[in-house]
Nucleic acid binder design. Structure first.
Lengths: 333, 333
DNA sequence: AACAAAAATGCAAGCGTTTTTATGAAAATT
DNA sequence: AATTTTCATAAAAACGCTTGCATTTTTGTT
């Protein structure tokens, strides 16, 4: 029945003070005589009083809760971000409502409405792309929003990423300098701005720098899945590619195993650089060279940025780029 | 300032009805004349009214939110459970507050208090073990609790698992029948009831059935980490083990790669069966034979059970064991 | 047409806090 | 000693909704 029976009123009565005073001590308001504070604290202890956060939220219009929209928690990439988010959320006394969106525009809108109805103090959004519907809702709502690991070409809301274009240019350049003239670009959907406007542009830039022609047949836009990668070996060998830059680790492992299972050797016949440096890159043989994005940190920084926004602090720069790195392992020379 | 300005009162005024009526249409209460319902709905639409879930929670004492305590979201095992949980939560109109505990008793207690303060309607707990502190809090609180992928020897609260002992007995039996006389048992801490009371017991049972002696030096209790597994090869070969049952996939991959990197071949020289059938088992070469636990389903069923409890429905059996399976791949004969 | 029963609606009291405003007591000032 | 200022506390009004009960309207019955 009753989740909790003792209220601030009970405490007030027992301690011979008004509710207001109890509220003050609970909230650390300094305008309380030390003696009364002690008395109240003692009663709180005795009664095992726990303030009702819902009532508090209604009265104060703050829920100390932030909504987190994530494509899929069971995807290790996003889960790593989520972990960073939750850790700093906890640090700043916030809780997180986690909602899976499956990248579906419809589900995202629904989830967003739901989160706003719950009066979250802020929102963190993760996804491969930001639909117009969602972006419109963001700008209409007064709730602060930060994107984590997600590109918004408009830069209207806060965001935390690495410099995808530059990272991509960097690794493709390495592949080319190592003697590969036909480097494949293996990504997810080109509908995603991050793939189309950043990574692919970086790829092109590297080719251009090295005076290599851009060849469309070397571009593969597929699913972000292991299976999808596994089946790519045939096309890759047919076209004569000797290396690939892959934008997702599962996909990269698929490519790797597809090659291996069909008699190619890596890195001798085919070199691979992947993008997310998840634990997968360490678990396969040969281990995969990868761009390393500081996923946990990206989540953490995003949440930190959000706390500032919720706190109405002055923000110097709301579009944050964290440094990336390249971890060389055995899928490259 | 104002997250949302329009309230139920505004809608009532515009539609020329009382708040009560608006509330009724919002909540689908049938006692409303179709015509008025339409009118109210229209105004809701026009004003873009969205009921404040916090106020609702206070008035109705239901938050349609459940707390989920998870050791670490970025652990794929728990993340898979979490995904199942969230999906059925969404299905039943609940949201999830996700809280990482790092398996730390202190953090768990803190998180639990926090969740209860937020008036969650129910709780799902995941972890390797259930501390006495936490268990005590569970039984004192009126909030329904379900354990997912987590053993409670007491069976006081709801839980969803597979039959760990039987699954363990089954795979060890297979290993023995395949000719391995020295099968190692590689687990995490023996402080965890699941390892000590279930998996190890299953292991022992299999040995006994096959008239093999129980040898303590074949038991390895270590971390659940890739690194820990990687370094086990020396001890394993020294003791003459020719197979291992491993309770965690990352650990198993570590063992596998440790062996491979030191010249052993799998499954010829050493056979491995792991426990969680995560995508990792497919990504390594050779692929790993594994017990398969229906992780997503375990989460889903746990949440479904919780909805019943929150709904005060009659529960036939609150300790649920889901069927397990064994997926044979290339780390066994 | 009159009345009873049923359906639709309104009223108002919560829900458990925070927060503004008012008040009384103590301390400081003259 | 009178007066002002400060500090501590209390009283009470929100916050935006649900819900039990009372009231009004509609429907059905004779």
């Amino acid at each position: 029945m009753d989740k909790q029976t003792i209220t601030i009123y009970d405490v007030a009565r027992e301690a011979n003070v008004s509710m207001a005073t109890v509220s003050r001590v609970v909230n650390g308001n300094p305008n309380v005589k030390p003696a009364t504070r002690q008395r109240v604290l003692k009663v709180i202890e005795e009664l095992d009083y726990r303030p009702n956060a819902v009532a508090r939220g209604l009265a104060s219009k703050k829920t100390t809760t932030v909504g987190v929209i994530i494509p899929d928690v069971s995807n290790i990439f996003f889960a790593s971000l989520a972990r960073g988010i939750d850790d700093v959320a906890t640090m700043y006394k916030y809780n997180i409502i986690l909602a899976n969106s499956d990248e579906s525009g419809q589900k995202e809108v629904q989830v967003l409405n739901n989160l706003l109805a719950k009066q979250v103090d802020g929102l963190i959004y993760m996804g491969h792309t930001l639909s117009d519907d969602v972006r419109a809702k963001f700008s209409r709502s007064k709730t602060p929003v930060v994107l984590a690991g997600t590109i918004d070409p408009d830069e209207q809301v806060g965001s935390v990423n690495i410099d995808y274009k530059e990272a991509s240019r960097f690794v493709v350049d390495k592949l080319v300098k190592d003697g590969n003239e036909k480097v494949a670009f293996i990504s997810g959907s080109m509908d995603y701005s991050i793939n189309r406007d950043y990574r692919l542009e970086g790829y092109k830039a590297a080719l251009k720098e090295n005076h290599l022609p851009y060849d469309e047949s070397l571009i593969f836009a597929t699913d972000y899945s292991y299976k999808a990668g596994e089946s790519l070996w045939a096309k890759l060998t047919a076209i004569g590619a000797t290396a690939a830059y892959v934008v997702d680790d599962e996909l990269a492992v698929g490519v790797l195993n597809g090659m291996l299972d069909h008699g190619m050797s890596v890195p001798e016949d085919f070199q691979i650089i992947t993008s997310n440096n998840t634990i997968l890159t360490e678990m396969v043989r040969p281990k995969l060279t990868s761009i390393s994005q500081p996923l946990y940190d990206m989540g953490a920084v995003a949440m930190r940025l959000l706390t500032k926004m919720m706190n109405k602090e002055e923000i110097e720069e709301k579009t944050i780029l964290l440094p990336y790195d390249m971890i060389e392992r055995n899928s490259t020379n």
